[in-house]
């Protein structure tokens, strides 16, 4: 089905964000079993993926495109430190421009087009009304720094990792919808350093194995995994920098408003090797669904209850669910009767 993005909805203040029936149907529900534990849950991101699924195309452009781009603009204006490129990452940013423009123009020709004459490129993004000509590789020919330029046209946060000293280093990114982590804080850190706060994964060897796997990803070997958390209200920007804005929302959950207030937040994380720079790219594409919309699917409703009920206390705490977790489990229990 071809996408036509809806007019702009909001992820803050009056929260006008909604999902259509189609968006609900294709929501990437992340629980394959009744109990959730961390694992190295990695699978191939070979194209094309399953038709109409969120992984049909390399970048999933959906009905929220305009809303997410408007939200990104707000965050960048308020907090410029959400876009960082260390000087040695310039080439990696151009790799991403190449990758994204090729995929978008091939997968969504009605919205995007790319014309190339040697290194003279003309890029058109009809959804945002952009048409730009530039010299590939020459950052001075773009209207914005290269990563911010392409990041403002992609749904999902991006980070580019330099691979050196047997690790990955978060040396560039545009991150406006993080699940409670900060690019400004993590920039320049290594893989095991930025994963420092995560429980279990270090002692269970998950982080070591994931790192080795990522470092061995070859060109054309794109891979993905799902991660999840819960967010109160359909708020994209849950950065630590603006914790005062959203932390207090957690206290507003009551048995009566769970279905409206609590959102399952799923990240589809795609990893790929950047050809010219050898950097590793991660695109973290965030999907939000309210509990009311989620329980329209009885299989999801039941499983959601079971995974939440059996979630280890360390995870409840790490993911920041402590305040409302019992209310949620109680509310979900009515969908898990037999």
């Amino acid at each position: 089905m071809s996408v036509s993005p809806k007019p702009i909805q909001t992820f803050r203040d009056d929260f006008t964000y909604t999902n259509s029936d189609y968006a609900i149907e294709r929501f990437p529900f992340p629980f394959p079993e009744d109990a959730y534990r961390y694992s190295v849950n990695i699978e191939s991101h070979k194209m094309p993926g399953v038709k109409d699924s969120v992984s049909e195309h390399f970048h999933d452009v959906d009905e929220h495109y305009l809303s997410e781009m408007a939200e990104r603009d707000l965050v960048i204006k308020h907090r410029p430190s959400c876009c960082i490129t260390l000087p040695h990452m310039d080439l990696a940013c151009w790799d991403l421009i190449d990758l994204s423009m090729h995929h978008l123009s091939k997968d969504y020709p009605e919205h995007f087009s790319l014309e190339k004459t040697d290194d003279q490129w003309v890029w058109e993004n009809r959804l945002l009304g952009l048409k730009d000509s530039f010299t590939f590789g020459d950052s001075s020919t773009l209207p914005l720094p290269p990563l911010e330029y392409i990041g403002r046209q992609l749904q999902g946060d991006i980070a580019l990792m330099d691979q050196r000293d047997n690790s990955l280093f978060m040396d560039a990114g545009v991150v406006t919808c993080p699940a409670d982590w900060s690019l400004a804080f993590d920039a320049g850190m290594s893989f095991s350093e930025w994963h420092g706060p995560v429980p279990f994964v270090h002692s269970e060897g998950i982080i070591d194995r994931a790192l080795k796997f990522l470092m061995a990803i070859p060109q054309g070997g794109a891979t993905r995994r799902l991660n999840w958390t819960l967010t109160i209200n359909p708020r994209m920007d849950t950065s630590p920098e603006v914790y005062p804005d959203w932390g207090k929302d957690k206290t507003t959950v009551t048995p009566e408003n769970v279905g409206d207030k609590v959102y399952l937040r799923v990240e589809m994380q795609v990893f790929d090797r950047m050809p010219r720079s050898n950097a590793l790219m991660i695109c973290i594409r965030t999907y939000l669904i309210s509990m009311n919309d989620l329980v329209t699917n009885p299989v999801w409703a039941k499983r959601m209850h079971r995974t939440m009920q059996t979630l280890p206390p360390e995870l409840v705490e790490y993911k920041g669910l402590t305040r409302f977790h019992p209310i949620l489990v109680e509310w979900l229990s009515k969908y898990d009767v037999e």
Binding site: H88, D162, Q163, R164, D165, P218, Q219, G220, P275, N278
Partner: peptide, 12 residues
């Protein structure tokens, strides 16, 4: 087989 890199410069 497509290019792979095991000997990248240390850009810093």
């Amino acid at each position: 087989k497509p290019p792979a890199n095991l000997f990248a410069p240390y850009w810093r």
